[in-house]
Amino acid sequence: MRFYYKLMLAAGLLLGVQQARAQFTGTWAKADIPLPYNRRYQVGDILFDPAQDRADFALRPSGRIYQYYNFNTTYSGGRPELRRQLLAALRTPPAGTSGSGYLTVRFVVNFRGETDRFRVQELDSGYQPQAFAPPLVAWVLRACRDLHSWQPGRIDAETQDSYFYCTFIVREGSIQDVLL
C-alpha cells in the first residue's frame, strides 16, 4: 500500500506540482495520471496525509478500501438514527457563521469501526465551490469524528475498510439537514 502511495506521489511530482499536491493531500481522483503509475487508483480515493491523518489508523493489509454501498457499512440503528444523532449534535452553530450550500464530509471507516482520513467538499446551493467559515467546518468535522458506533461492512463475515460520507445542508450558517 505504502509503495503505491510513494509511486503515485513520485508520478505526481514528475507530472507537475499541481498534480502532486492533489495526490498528496488526497483530494479527488485525478484521471490524467498515466495508468502505469496509477492502476489501482479509484474515483474518490483519499490518500494518507501525515499533516492531518493518524499514522496509527489501522487498515487491512490488502490495501483495498471499499465503498460503503458495496456491503452496507452503516451506523448502529441505521442511517435515520445517524441523521438523528448528527442533527442533535449540531443544533447551535458557532457564533458568526453564515453561508448556504452543501458541506460533504468523507472519511474512512476501518475494519474496527474507527474513523479517520476526513476530507471536506464545500459547495454553494448552485453546486459551485465555496468556503464556509472555518469554525463551521471544524464544528461539523468534530461532530463526525465524535461518532463511535460504526458497523463496518463485511465480506465473508470479515469486516472491511470502506469510505463513507455525510452531506450537510447548510442554510444561513446553520445545519438544516444531513443527507444519508
Binding site: 479509484q42 474515483v43 474518490g44 452543501y102 460533504t104 467538499q121 459547495l123 459551485q128 460520507y165 452531506t167
Partner: peptide, 13 residues
Amino acid sequence: VPFLKRGDFLTWK
C-alpha cells in the same frame, strides 16, 4: 456516476 456515489457532487454536476 462514481463521483455521485462517492460524494463528489461538484464533478458529478
